[in-house]
Simulated scan of single mutants.
Amino acid sequence: MEASAVRAAADLLQGAYRSRTPIAPLIDEYPDADVTDAYRIQQEQVRRWNEAGDPVKGHKVGLASAAMQRQMGVDQPDYGHLLGGMFHLEHQPIPAQRFLQPRIEPEIAFVLGRRLSGPGVTVADAIQAVDFVLPALEIVDSRISDWRISIVDTIADNASSGGVILGSKPTSLTAVDLRLAGCTLHYGGDLVATGAGGAVLGSPVNALVWLANTVGPLGIDLEPGHVVLPGSMTRAVPVRPGDAVVADIAGLGSVTAVFDREGRP
Results as ranks from 00 to 15, higher is better:
Leu137Phe: 15
Ser145Met: 07
Ser203Tyr: 00
Phe99Lys: 13
Asn213Asp: 15
Thr194Asp: 04
Gly167Phe: 00
Val123Arg: 11
Ile139Trp: 02
Ile155Arg: 03
Thr194Arg: 11
Gly113Glu: 10
Thr184Pro: 12
Leu134Cys: 07
Arg115Val: 11
Thr154Val: 15
Ser117Pro: 01
Ile151Ser: 09
Ser168Pro: 02
Ser172Ile: 06
Ile108Tyr: 01
Arg115Phe: 05
Leu211Met: 09
His226Leu: 10
Phe99Trp: 10
Ala196Gln: 14
Ile108Gln: 04
Ile220Gly: 03
Glu107Phe: 04
Asn213Ser: 12
Leu166Ser: 08
Gly113Thr: 08
Arg115Trp: 06
Leu208Gln: 03
Pro217Ala: 13
Leu201Ser: 05
Val111Lys: 04
Val227Asp: 06
Gly120Arg: 09
Ala196Pro: 01
Gly120Tyr: 04
Arg98Lys: 13
Gly202Asp: 07
Ile104Gln: 05
Leu185Gly: 06
Cys183Thr: 15
Val205Gly: 10
Ala129Gln: 04
Asp125Phe: 03
Gly202Ala: 08
Leu180Ser: 15
Gly120Pro: 04
Glu138Gly: 03
Leu134Phe: 02
Arg115Ala: 13
Pro230Thr: 06
Cys183Gln: 07
Ser150Glu: 04
Val176Lys: 06
Pro102Glu: 14
Val164Ser: 11
Gly197Lys: 09
Asp221His: 10
Ser117Asp: 10
Ser150Tyr: 00
Val215Trp: 02
Val215Ala: 07
Val215Phe: 03
Leu178Cys: 11
Val140Ser: 09
Val140Phe: 00
Ser161Asn: 10
Gly113Asp: 08
Arg98Leu: 15
Gln128Trp: 13
Phe132Gly: 05
Pro217Val: 13
Ala181Ile: 08
